[in-house]
Every structure is written in structure tokens, then in C-alpha cells.
Computed example of a mutant assay.
Amino acid sequence: MSVQGFTAPGFEAVADAFARNFERYGEVGAAFAAYRDGEVLVDLWGGVADPGSGRPWRADTLQLVFSGAKGLTAACVLLLVQRGLLDLDAPAARYWPEFAAAGKERITVAEILSHQARLPGVREPFGTAELLDPRHMAGLLAAQAPSDDPRAGFVYHALTWGWLTGELVRRVDGRSVGALFAEEFAGPLGLDVWLGLPDEQHHRVATMLASPGVLETPGRPAETDPLRVLARNPLMAPDAPALWNSAAFRRAELPAVGAHVTARSMARFYACLARGGELDGVRVLKEDTVELARRELRCGVSPLWGSEMAYGAGYELRTGAALFGPPSQTFGHAGAWGSRHGAWPAERLGFSYAMNLARAELPDRRPLDLLAALHDATRTHR
């Protein structure tokens, strides 16, 4: 497998690590990129975008990054905070009156952003069409009572996070998250990043694949823990890959899990955040607004996963697992089963790893090895 793309002088070891992912970990198709300030340090791609047809991964291949979308949506929320349209400490019901129903009148915007809203799933039955309709799902959550399970105050809201934040954005701005991000971030920064993919771009998307252990096993014993049942992620169902790769899923503006991106553009987006919201003379956020992304709102051990979690205003922060690389001041957001996107503020650097093979193994060495090689190179070539 030949690695294509570019590495700046001194960053060749990153390309070596990228190639080893195919040799050691069965990578199918992937891209990795890093920007420091406005300079491209790494822009690599390789492998197969669609094993069925043999279509190779190209420079412009788009990849679904699941919860990598949360970092884009969080930026939209922070922009509205910056403009005085949202207050992180205010009850969400101030902007979305229906949300006050069933005892949710005190849940704040910050609690929603940091997975403390006690709404990790939707109790009302729904089908695929409803799942792909953010406004419908937001309406179900507005009517739902928060979980009274004491563990629910810090359970990852895999899908509901997006329906909650997306509705807040729509209520105060009028635009969907996809439209707001396109106009306020993607356009000014020149990003090939989409929340809601136009049909004419679908041919560029890599086919998402699931390795053993990613999906739920048919016939397994029924879950009996009510909180786990509530928090169940329908994107892990046995037939989920058909949904991931469907035109309907690509079109849907799912604020939590629906982004299609190039690693190059995600790295550029996070390089902008690493520089306090400005890149190449374009400012999309103020420095103190970006600081809200990094200010810890909650840290602790997930009661369902048993692993440490730390959140700022919508962004994952560094924990002992160092999922975003060795630097101490990292933030960003991972995508399910492998992808990783984030900022190293001290190094003024943004990075992104996107791939089309979902792996269940933890820790996933693919992004960790890439970030270790990138960190070594940046320390030597500042």
C-alpha cells in the first residue's frame, strides 16, 4: 500500500506511522493531516475508499466521522454565546420553552454541552425516518422527563446531545447547525466539512466498514439495566452499516454524529481553534470564546464505560488516557471506533485522523501512534 500526500521536512516519521497502520492494524482506507498556524505539516492519505468497487482513497475523499461532528456543533454554540444569544449558565428552557416540561426547567446549556442533562436516550419509540429528523427528535426530548437514576448525571449523550444542541441553535439563530457551520466556519476558512451532505458530493464518500465486535450481536441476552437500555446507541445495531452508508444518512444534518469531512479540513479547523479562533487572517471566534471550549465543566469516571471523561463546552479534554496526544493542553472530539480530531494550543497545531474501518479494540493504536509520531516531530522541528 503506497502512502500519498505530503510531509514537511522532519515529519517523515509520521508517514511511516501512517503506513504501519495498514501493516499492523488492518487499516483499509484513511487520511491524517496536521496544520501548525497556517502551515501544512502533514497531509496523508492511502488505501481503499470502497472495497466493493476497489475505488481508491483520493485527496478529496470524504469520510463520516460520527462524533467528530460534536466539535463542529460545539463551535456553533460557542459562536452564539459570543454574540450574546446564549448563556452557558442559563436554563435551556429560556431559549426553548417546551424543554421545561417534565422537570427539566433547571437544566442549563452548559449541562447539555457537558453530557449532564440526564437525557442519554429517547424513551419514545422511533424509526429510521424519525432518527434522521433532528427537529422531531428534539420534540420527543422536550416532552421527556430526565432520568432519575443517580448515575445518569454523567452519561455520554451519543445522539441526544446533537438533537438538544441543534434545537438550541435553531431557536436562537434560526439556522440549522449545518447551515450555520457552512456560513460561519466552513466558508470563511475554506473547509471541506459538511453537516448535511449535498447529493452531488456523495460520490466522494468512503464506505464505512465495521470490524468484528463493533456491532451488537444478534441473539445476545437482553439488557436489563434500565439506564443502559435508555442510553443504547441505535447506530450500533447489527444492520447499522447500511444506515451509515445510506444517502438519507448523508443528507441528514445530525449535529452529534453526521459530519462528512476531509482530514485536511478538520485539521485546519482545529488549527484555527488552537490559535484562539483565527487562522490566515480570518477570525471566526474570539480568544476568550475558545477558552470556554477548554474550561472544564465536568470530569469523572463514566458510570457505564468505567473510563475517565472530561468535558469543556462541548469538547473532550485531556484525561489520563491522552486520547488527543501527549501535550497537556489538548482538546477536541473523537469519533466512534477510531477517528480523532483536536487542537494542541501550546503548539498552535490542529490535527485530524479519519478512516473507514470501525474497530472495537481499546485503546485504538492507530490514532495514538500517529499522534505520538507527530508530537516527536513537532518537538524537534518547531
Rank of each mutant, 00 (worst) to 15 (best):
P97Q: 03
F99A: 00
A100L: 05
G103N: 10
K104G: 08
K104Y: 13
K104N: 13
T108F: 04
T108Y: 04
V109L: 13
A110N: 03
A110V: 09
I112W: 00
Q116I: 00
Q116K: 14
A117N: 03
A117D: 04
A117Q: 01
L119A: 02
G121K: 01
E124H: 12
P125V: 09
F126S: 08
F126G: 10
F126R: 11
A129K: 14
L132W: 08
L132H: 06
D133G: 10
A138W: 09
G139I: 03
G139Q: 10
A142I: 08
A143N: 02
Q144H: 10
Q144L: 06
P150D: 14
R151H: 12
A152T: 13
G153A: 14
G153D: 13
V155E: 01
V155R: 03
Y156H: 14
Y156M: 05
H157P: 05
L159S: 04
L159W: 00
T160Q: 07
G162E: 10
W163N: 00
T165K: 01
E167Q: 13
V169L: 09
G174Y: 09
R175W: 11
S176A: 14
G178F: 13
A179K: 15
L180A: 10
L180F: 15
F181I: 11
E183L: 07
F185L: 07
G187C: 03
L191W: 04
D192R: 15
L195R: 10
L197W: 06
L197C: 09
D199P: 11
A206N: 02
T207E: 14
M208C: 11
M208Y: 00
M208G: 00
M208N: 05
S211G: 13
G213M: 02
V214T: 06
P218I: 11
